[in-house]
Simulated assay, not measured.
Amino acid sequence: MVREPRYRLVKPDLLRELMGRTGTGSDISGRELATQVGIPHGTVDALLRGATKTQPAGVAHDISRVIGVDLLILWAPTGRAVPDEDSVSDIPAAAARV
């Protein structure tokens, strides 16, 4: 089974700032954003607090669309250069020297 690509939120504070003035010029609350995207409002809260760092591609695209910005303004695709929160681990010092 192929896992949907994930995107890492670049800066939670930027999301908060852009929620204050969306592409339409109006503000949007976390609850409103969650409702329009179709996710639990706790997910938006966790993103804003930095407790959650990544979202599936579809959610990242939808958040960007609702806010009114290009995807890569808020998100970075995970992969070799940008690990997702599920694959981040401490590398033992000995392994890092190899």
Rank of each mutant, 00 (worst) to 15 (best):
D62T: 09
A57G: 06
A51F: 12
L74H: 10
L47Q: 08
T52N: 11
P56G: 06
L48A: 08
A57Y: 12
A57Q: 10
L74E: 02
P77K: 01
V44D: 07
L72W: 14
A51V: 07
I63Q: 12
V82W: 02
V82Y: 04
T43I: 12
D70H: 11
G79D: 03
A60F: 12
V69L: 07
V82N: 03
L47Y: 14
I39G: 03
V82C: 01
D84S: 12
W75S: 09
R49S: 14
D84L: 04
D86E: 11
D45K: 07
P40N: 09
G79V: 00
G58R: 04
P77G: 02
G79N: 00
L48P: 05
L48N: 07
D70K: 05
V59Q: 12
P40F: 03
V59K: 14
V44E: 08
R49Y: 15
V82F: 01
P56F: 09
T52R: 11
H41I: 00
S64M: 04
L48M: 03
A81G: 01
D84T: 04
T52S: 13
A81M: 08
A76H: 12
A51E: 15
A57N: 06
A76R: 05
R49V: 01
L71M: 07
T43E: 06
D86C: 02
D86Q: 05
H61Q: 09
A51D: 15
L74D: 03
Q55R: 14
T78G: 01
Q55W: 10
H41A: 02
